[in-house]
Design a binder for these strands. Structure first.
Lengths: 182, 182
DNA sequence: TGCTCCATGTAGCAATCGCTACATTAAGAT
DNA sequence: ATCTTAATGTAGCGATTGCTACATGGAGCA
């Protein structure tokens, strides 16, 4: 049924926009449908049930995220690990990334609790980010693969601490780890 | 009104137990009340409304977390940063800490979205953890304050990546950062 | 004995939840 | 022209949401 698949893919961007603004926790069918210009009746018709809808929506959001990462960053490598860390931190602080970040913690919470579809989408986004980070590592880095994982762990810790008002703690940690210029 | 305060504090542990098992997202009054052996009617009576209940519950959970941290770890210092990192990672992998960890991501998500009470509780728990980590740092460490923040950022990143199925990525990062013995 | 007031049970309200039964439209196939 | 079928609207179901109105018990105080 190509028309069904077309309909799904027509709906998903609008659903994603709504979820990016209002979060996943309170996402119920009627507001979602309204945001997509249709009815709850039709959402069930196209996706079968809410669980499937959310799973497909998460997959779509992961795709959007990948595209946003690609757009936000040119392909050229950094010259130092410090520069590499600074770049990805700068991406995270862009205003248009804030909605993603807020939604991200919803997804992490769902993944931790084992909700269907959450872990897959989260893992996909992390894999994508890791690949991008590896591509950004300095050409003369002695261990680009390990270094990228090291940087990524530090970055994610920084994002989490920032989310709960401990951003300064994280920055001091980055400083002490030599990942920020002193 | 001491009786009201007593009632609140009598209820909070049972409410916390329920939330630790079932999460904060789906926590509604009637299941909470049932877990506490009372009625939704009485929860509203004692706490005024659900928002206040959740805020006080989060504060209580932060207190529980602090106590659990103290219990789980003796007071003596580690001898190296590696040992320090290993200790706190070991704490996080204890089975009785799993419920806390799952709930933690709910709290982070609420804090990121700005829900009332979440950020305060999360910040309190992170402050407590930081203090504990500083007390664990090696006595001969050249920069215990910065080192504790560095370790904490790495640890939080590791926990997040583990929650989304990228625990191996984090471990490789810790290895590359010299925080795990190779 | 009355009076007062905190604590609690019972019942229910309006809103929202995911989902479904049924009817209707419209387009394409025969 | 008829038949079939995908797509959609309307209406509603039973459950659950946070919260409230009302009545009642029961303890302390006069």
């Amino acid at each position: 049924m190509p028309s069904v698949q077309l309909s799904r893919e027509t709906l998903l961007p609008k659903l994603a926009a709504h979820v990016l603004e209002h979060g996943l926790g309170g996402a119920s069918l009627r507001p979602l449908a309204k945001a997509a210009g249709t009815s709850d009746r039709m959402l069930i018709y196209h996706f079968g049930n809410k669980e499937t809808l959310i799973s497909e929506l998460l997959g779509h959001i992961a795709t959007i995220y990948s595209a946003a990462l690609d757009t936000a960053l040119g392909g050229e490598r950094a010259r130092t690990r410090q520069e590499c860390a600074a770049r990805i931190l700068a991406v995270g602080s862009q205003p248009e990334m804030q909605a993603f970040l807020v939604l991200w913690w919803d997804i992490v919470a769902g993944a931790a609790r084992g909700l269907p579809g959450y872990r897959e989408a989260a893992a996909q986004m992390m894999t994508q980010q890791l690949a991008w980070l590896e591509g950004q590592m300095p050409a003369d880095d002695p261990d680009p693969a390990g270094g990228a994982r090291y940087l990524m762990t530090m970055i994610e810790g920084t994002l989490m601490l920032s989310a709960v008002g401990h951003g300064d703690t994280a920055l001091q940690g980055l400083l002490a780890g030599g990942l920020l210029p002193s």
